[in-house]
Design a protein around this nucleic acid. Sequence first.
DNA 1: GGTGAAAGCACCGAGTT
DNA 2: AACTCGGTGCTTTCACC
Lengths: 160, 160
Amino acid sequence: MKGKIKLDETDHQILNMLIDNTRTPFTDIAKKLDISAGTVHVRVKKMEESGIIIGSSLTLNYKKLGYTFIAYVGIFLEKTSQTQFVLNRIEEIPNITVAHVTTGKFNLFCKIRAKNTEHAKNIIFLIDDIDGVSRTETMISMEESLNDKTRLMKSIFENM
Amino acid sequence: MKGKIKLDETDHQILNMLIDNTRTPFTDIAKKLDISAGTVHVRVKKMEESGIIIGSSLTLNYKKLGYTFIAYVGIFLEKTSQTQFVLNRIEEIPNITVAHVTTGKFNLFCKIRAKNTEHAKNIIFLIDDIDGVSRTETMISMEESLNDKTRLMKSIFENM
DNA sequence: GGTGAAAGCACCGAGTT
DNA sequence: AACTCGGTGCTTTCACC
């Protein structure tokens, strides 16, 4: 957790390639950037140690796994002092993939993945039942446009 | 894209290990599951070919990259027939990391990542300026609770 | 901080049961 | 469908720049 980390153009390019495919061989990266594979290895290790790279994960096709349902649920609390308690309860529900404490309309806000409407209904009922939740508002996603992480990263690097 | 794919317990365990760390050596997975590394290889390849595994990606610490700001933006359209057009424009903005067509309050709904409030404001203005957008409503995230993908996967597998 | 070579492994396909 | 095994190629280290 050493304060500020400086990344140069080479680091950016390494990250861009690994974001596209975590298993890109370091030898391939080395060839493309005209450096040695050892250097790629050292740089990646440094970025892991400094906490820039948190980890790596697979992208799965949830539809093929039978999970076709996505919704966002806005949560209203009775008192804002219950925020942390409710957040902890929410984090225990595996079908909630992200949760946020928000300003604006809702106190809390989360995304759920479910098999179908019936399944989603049960998850939303679980949320409604948490102590301190006064009511919820659900937005059902009819279409998710996949996000391209590389594009975001490229724009981040351009502005550094 | 062959309709239904059946995964057994071994596949689930392979996926769980790779979700935690994409670079887990197949030999380690093989040892843990008491099968040969060749078998792990064949199974992973099948899951890639069948489209269950879409790809792999790094998880980065956006805060350390100077991106501390997350917000969700709900979008109201003048006419729903403009949905696809607006979605296409939205996908061109790199700071928008996910976008959804939704039922309920909003017509479209997206997540943005920015450096700070000033930067976020500019992105939201970009959205407001798209033809067909009548107005937007922003929810600022003050805290994001990170999701543990393994937990979701495990719950998916338990119910198969 | 980078290199290049060498040792140690992992990947992956072919052939077998 | 899974195993073993061997060739190929990747990772990782280290002495040197």
